[in-house]
Nucleic acid binder design. Structure first.
Length: 422
RNA sequence: GGAGACGUCGCAUAGUCCGGUCGAGUGCACCACCCUGCUAAGGUGGAGAGCCCUAUUAGGGCUCCGUGGGUUCAAAUCCCACCGUCUCCGCCA
């Protein structure tokens, strides 16, 4: 939810953001009107209710003889109060919906436009070149006995995989490397629930733009999360947290589930895009004044992972129209995938400013003693998809794959993954 | 899944039977000040969240006693449903 104060004081800022996103500008006027109607309705209700409360005291103080007359007088008032209460809560719900329909206000400097209007901030590392025809990650994965899509499909359907042998170990090694890095940076590790209640799913913004990508467990009215960001954001929902000693930082380890309904035919090969994968996610609760600095910090941690894993990558500043409803700015780190001859997103990090926190009622105490929404940020530190980039980048002519040095301590010292079949 | 008990302003608890004097009491913790010549004891006062209005270093009002409904002029208190916690039983790839 955007700041209703901003909506009242500077609707033109919100409208500019909508334009940058290519979203409906008329939503802003609609929300402003609904907000005004809400306040009128509340004022009316409260006036009547105050009258009724005052009357209630007179009734309580009245003698037995006086009571019947007073009760007769106040009957009408009671029904008027009831009607006003209904109008007021209806107006409130309408205003919540209208204001809630507006996505987060993008930060200054975010490129305008849609998916293709990103700005490349930098390219780092050397794009690998081979003196043989490089194999793609699935071919390598099958040679190494690391990835089995056929049986994944047999058991669970398309877009499901088995990671086996060194594939399974590589995944755990990546996750553990990421966890170590997160611990070094004082993130608190958290293994999160992957089934969450509707209000948490909605609060994090995933029922708006992404609702078609979400699995719902109807029998329980719960949602399977597509990222631990959901449970990490929900962790402090409805709380006033203490940021006096600095940000609260968590590293969430979880399996993620995505329906991928809108991406039929895309990335059908291998583990680039599956319904289920694992991810280590960083999540920070910070004072809104520190949000942009924290964003750079998360990005730096992601870039260090890329560099250490020997991946060539670039960083893009995602265009406004490609941001989720909660994000005010998002950087994607994209690694070079040799057989696709292009960069593919491996991680992203979003600054949600106070948007998520306002929806989830996560506040902190400011120096003046008042409460105010915090800012939330998230960023990926490892995920299954990275295996594709690692296998392809570090492959050799015979189908073996060199293990990046930083991963070796986490995979029993293995230096090279050798093909298991001829 | 069954039975029972419980859910109150940070923590602990009173209040619920019998609706209005609950504007929610008390203890601990907390904050400020006072006293005391020393990290103790004591005293005085303060202190929750959300929202609305007037006005912005202030005042007034409304809502909140797990959640949501209902009864009533009036609900922490009565009724219903749901959620959660605990105890026991059952079940358990």
């Amino acid at each position: 939810m955007i700041d209703p104060q901003l909506l009242r004081a500077a609707p033109e800022v919100v409208e500019a953001s909508q334009r940058a996103r290519g979203a409906d500008v008329a939503l802003v006027a609609r929300a402003t009107e609904a907000d005004a109607a809400r306040r009128d309705a509340i004022a009316e209700f409260e006036r009547l209710r105050a009258e009724q409360n005052a009357f209630g005291k007179r009734v309580a103080a009245a003698s037995k003889d006086e009571k019947p007359a007073l009760l007769a007088q106040v009957k009408d008032l009671a029904s008027a109060v009831k009607a006003a209460a209904e109008r007021s809560s209806a107006a409130e719900a309408a205003a919540d919906e209208a204001v809630g329909a507006i996505p987060n206000v993008v930060l200054a400097g975010v490129p305008e436009g849609g998916e293709d209007d990103y700005v490349v901030l930098r390219e780092v590392g050397t794009v690998p070149e081979f003196d043989f025809a490089p194999r793609d990650h699935l071919e390598l994965g099958e040679l190494l006995g690391a990835i089995d899509m056929v049986r994944g499909a047999k058991v669970s359907g398309t877009r499901f995989s088995y990671l086996r042998g060194v594939g399974a170990r590589l995944e755990l090694a990546l996750m553990n490397l990421a966890l170590d890095r997160a611990l070094e940076a004082a993130f608190v590790p958290l293994i999160t629930p992957t089934l969450v209640k509707p209000e948490i799913m909605r609060g994090t913004g995933f029922l708006d733009a992404h609702s078609d990508a979400v699995y719902r467990v109807e029998s329980e009215d719960l949602y399977l999360t597509g990222t631990s960001e959901v449970a990490l954001a929900g962790y402090h929902s409805d709380e006033i947290i203490d940021l006096a000693d600095g940000p609260l930082r968590y590293a969430g380890w979880s399996t993620c589930y995505r329906l991928e309904a809108g991406s039929a035919g895309k990335d059908t090969r291998g583990i680039i895009r599956t319904h289920q994968f694992d991810k280590l996610e960083m999540f920070s609760y910070v004072d809104p004044a520190d949000a942009e600095q924290e964003h750079e910090r998360l990005l730096a941690m992601q870039e260090r992972m890329m560099t250490d894993l020997g991946l060539a990558y670039r960083v893009i500043d995602t265009a406004a129209g490609d941001l989720g409803s909660s994000a005010a700015r998002k950087y994607d780190v994209e690694a070079w995938i040799p057989t696709q001859n292009r960069y593919r997103e491996l991680t992203s990090t979003s600054n949600c400013t106070t948007y998520q926190a306002r929806r989830l009622a996560i506040r902190h105490r400011t120096e003046s003693g008042r409460t105010a929404p915090v800012a939330t940020l998230n960023g990926t530190l490892a995920t299954t998809r990275w295996i594709a980039a690692i296998l392809e980048t570090h492959q050799r002519a015979d189908g073996s794959v060199v293990v990046p040095e930083v991963l070796r301590p986490f995979i029993g010292g293995l230096e090279v993954l050798e093909p298991t079949v001829a």
